[in-house]
Design a protein around this nucleic acid. Structure first.
Lengths: 215, 215, 215, 215
DNA sequence: TATGAATGAGAATTCATTCAT
DNA sequence: TATGAATGAATTCTCATTCAT
């Protein structure tokens, strides 16, 4: 006979988890919109539809809540990266796919950019304190190393490329454009987020990276 | 006709200018360290060694002060860019020089990165409201267009390169690395600001851009 | 007839008693350390290793818990006083013994002093509301009256001494010194709780009281 | 010609001082009534008729305010003690006068007792941190030493009496009775603050101390 | 031009207490 | 008997801003 978990205890467990999840989601949005300094705990509670006190019950204080949000954000992008199956593709296609994914992820998750910004404003203090920081190391780095090596062996790619540098470069090409799109749009007097501008940027990024890699 | 000013009022004026400059410098540091939301008017006054009331006297409120700081920052980098004399150099050297300058400027002015971050967190509202936004358009864009065109004509560079995209890419390669150096150092478990790491990054950036441009 | 209790309920009862005892002890320490106003129900639960809700289950609210703690404290010192058997001693020895006991009890139970303080800060409201207040009247007063009368009859002690006044005086001589030892140590620049200082105080107290009583 | 201070600047100075004084008085009353833990900054502001923010402006936080109140209280009793001119009196009269003053001062300043209580609950932390703690050493100790020595030389007083111990004893006899009058009244079932009870206590105290001192 | 005093509206955080099981 | 989840009402403290001179 299978022991049936009482719905009651089940419910209770789920409630605690659900509450924490709801708070995290609300906090992520609030932090993304206003930064760590500008975020309001009151507003997070309101967004979550939960009592403000509960935030402190589960997360101790605003800083720790921010840290939890950050870790969640990193975990999320890492999980998606792991679904790319880059090793199943030809090296140039794999790189192209990574670029497209990065671009797309940033567009779908504008809060990720802002959270990253805030985290760095505070000198990665929140991450440095996280024991799990190293776990956040993207598994894509390893994969990318394999892809680069294979491309080199096949004669498509140049040699001597550090996968970390390349990963950071791909991210940087997308990140700076999107993160500063407002400022840049104002300065250059053209809307960098318009559909056409977006696809042009993606093409440019791809050309830069592949133009550099391909021999 | 010589404009006559009483020495007294002259001096007072100079004091006024000096005070404003002192406040701007103090504000720049405070905003860079804590972001717009985290910056404290009290601390700015303290840093400036001037009465808080004076800040309001000269800059009306915190937001306008931030705007003034931003404009100053843009003006400064623009001025330095104008001293590069890229047109006196061979196209590849010119591009290399621009990359090196960008990298170097960001290293010398870490506050510039943070200010940019803050500005974008607030959706460039401060810049959009600035009547002088367009004036901040880097003159380097024009120059870069000329350099690219000359390179293409000489057969060194590929064609069809948008100078704005290229400018943004160069900035992005440097910016993301430096702006997120803390987070990335924590994640990758290596100090990205160590001298060796720095020079490696500069090499990588140069290779990427020139590798892409050169045919 | 033997009262029958199921072992189960018996055990449960004993658990209940134990829980109450544990809570009272934890509360006594917390109140002693922080006073009524500064004590935290959360901390009491933590000290007791029991759920906070249980405190309310047994003691209704914080105030009533404090009252229970106070009554326990009075009951304890009263019980110890009853073990002194002052009537078996010569009057001067009896008084000396009471002084020594008082001094020693305060040293062994510093929380007693603090609880007394807190109770009086709140104008003895908690005691006034206790139906058992009069029961707390120290039985030592009666005994002391007998001792004083016997000393007077024997020609050792002066007459006309109110036992309540004397009891209060003995307590006061010890209490003020100990209760304010930190403040006094800071002011006089000498450690009033050092072993030598302690025994000097006890001698002084004894000399004062016996010097006054003895004719 | 005498330079006339502008009423304006004078006024301003007085205002700052006055505000601080008003806050201190309000705080003293609030702390005396509720203890450090139970005192409310809001209520202090209300009592003072001043903006709450001003309290933080002048005193930084609640703890520092409490410390300032304490220092003020000590300063006050010390100043009054200095007006006693004990050296102009015969030794027994001098001691009697000190006892009466102590009793009277505690009756006139019940807040002094409560503040002392609170201070000691917090282990004299506030005083220990005060650089001025030693200055609070009552000058009466020195005087009392002289009085005791003179009494001994004249043959009225016993020798070997430590003035600090005596001073603490006098304070203790009065303090315990008054500070715990509520508890004691409840326990003994008689009003210890009734006029008759008060004068009886003063007589008792005087008899104890002089009975002890006089040979 | 310059400044110390003062303030109202919030902000994070705390706390005793209750709910639901 | 026992407990984890949840809450509303404070409470301390902060902050941008204004007043008065």
């Amino acid at each position: 006979m299978v022991r049936e978990t009482s719905p009651a205890s089940d419910e209770r467990l789920r409630d605690a988890d659900r509450s924490q999840g709801v708070i995290l989601a609300a906090a992520r949005d609030e932090f993304a919109e206003h930064g760590l300094g500008g975020a309001r705990v009151d507003r997070i509670a309101e967004r979550a539809g939960l009592n403000k006190r509960l935030i402190y019950y589960y997360f101790e204080d605003k800083e720790k809540l921010f840290q939890a949000v950050l870790e969640l954000a990193y975990r999320d992008i890492r999980e998606e990266e792991m679904k790319l199956h880059l090793l199943d593709l030809e090296p140039p296609t794999a790189v192209r796919r990574l670029i497209e994914f990065t671009w797309d992820y940033y567009l779908r998750h504008p809060e990720f950019l802002t959270l990253l910004n805030s985290a760095n404003l505070h000198r990665a203090r929140h991450l440095a304190e996280s024991k799990r920081a190293r776990e956040l190391n993207s598994p894509v780095i390893e994969t990318l190393a394999t892809v680069l090596e294979r491309g080199r062996r096949e004669g498509t790619f140049r040699g001597g490329v550090d996968p970390v540098q390349l990963y950071v470069s791909i991210a940087g090409l997308a990140y700076f454009y999107l993160s500063n799109s407002h400022t840049l749009s104002a300065i250059f007097g053209r809307d960098l987020l318009a559909p056409k501008a977006r696809s042009e940027r993606l093409s440019h990024m791809t050309e830069v990276i592949l133009g550099y890699l391909t021999r």
